[in-house]
């Protein structure tokens, strides 16, 4: 398979949907290595759907998705799992395993995929928890964490194997502005310090303008991408009125993008 330099993710002619009902049609875009890439759009336009297809949870109706040059669509199950191991995913509610403590959650991928000794694993877990400001919370059970803490713990688990590629579904939904700003800083730190590529589904415009290098905007009516580029540039110069309205929060209803959730 040809490895295109600079493209961490390549989406080609992708059509996704549920049991024959098409949600998004014929998408084409790339995510470059080392950038923070945001997926925007009105509620129900298919952002989560797109993300779940990119990470290989669902099979697309048509098209192809290349992760670091390997097709996650055509891969057999063994190979798909191998591709999945290269990236980390943080789920909306954290998706921590409720029967394990926070530390055990973070340790799980290390136990499964590395030959580290228990001591080294404990050290790595400690380091990851410190990274997300949860040092000292290793012994807590997921039920004892607040929503924001659970999300950050989920991030620590996603970071356990030092993936170069990270996916987020609405990282800041339900977080207070301060925690959400901290999360933004953390994402930028991951990009700048570790060269991580980060794909984020989000509604928060503040956060988009702070962190995103590039965005795509999805549209429910046309089932396609209506904008692709740096957020500030799109806000100021996009020929599409809907896009400008969305990015400036003006007249969302009037422009018919469906409003924000």
């Amino acid at each position: 398979m040809d490895k295109k330099r600079g493209a961490e993710i390549e989406v080609k002619n992708l059509t996704v949907g549920y049991s024959g009902k098409i949600v998004l049609e014929n998408l084409n875009f790339q995510v470059a290595t080392g950038e923070i890439f945001c997926i925007l759009g009105g509620s129900g336009c298919g952002k989560s759907t797109l993300l779940k297809h990119i990470i290989g949870l669902y099979e697309p109706i048509a098209g192809d998705i290349l992760i670091q040059g390997d097709s996650i669509v055509q891969a057999d199950e063994q190979h798909r799992r191998e591709i999945m191991r290269r990236f980390g995913v943080t789920y909306q509610g954290g998706a921590l395993f409720s029967s394990m403590s926070v530390a055990e959650n973070v340790a799980l991928p290390l136990e499964e995929y590395t030959r580290l000794t228990p001591k080294e694993i404990a050290a790595t877990v400690e380091e990851k928890l410190r990274l997300v400001d949860l040092a000292g919370f290793g012994d807590y059970m997921p039920a004892e964490l607040s929503g924001g803490m659970a999300k950050r713990a989920g991030l620590a688990r996603a970071l356990a194997l030092n993936p170069k590629l990270l996916f987020f579904d609405e990282p800041s939904a339900g977080l207070d502005p301060i925690t959400s700003a901290e999360l933004d800083r953390l994402l930028m730190r991951l990009r700048d310090r570790f060269g991580a590529t980060i794909v984020v589904v989000t509604h928060e415009l503040d956060s988009v303008f702070t962190i995103a290098d590039r965005i795509i905007m999805l549209d429910k009516q046309t089932k396609s991408i209506v904008a692709n580029g740096p957020p500030a540039l799109l806000r100021d110069t996009s020929p599409n009125e809907k896009v400008r309205a969305f990015l400036t929060r003006d007249g969302l209803k009037a422009a018919g993008t469906g409003g924000r959730a």
């Binding site: 949870l57 799992r81 999945m84 995913v89 509610g93 998706a95 409720s98 991928p109 995929y113």
Partner: peptide, 18 residues
């Protein structure tokens, strides 16, 4: 069932664990 609802099953899957 709760693990599925909670996306814990999806999380396992994207960790490459069956």
């Amino acid at each position: 069932g709760t693990m599925k609802l909670d996306e814990q099953i999806s999380a396992l899957e994207t960790m490459g664990i069956r």
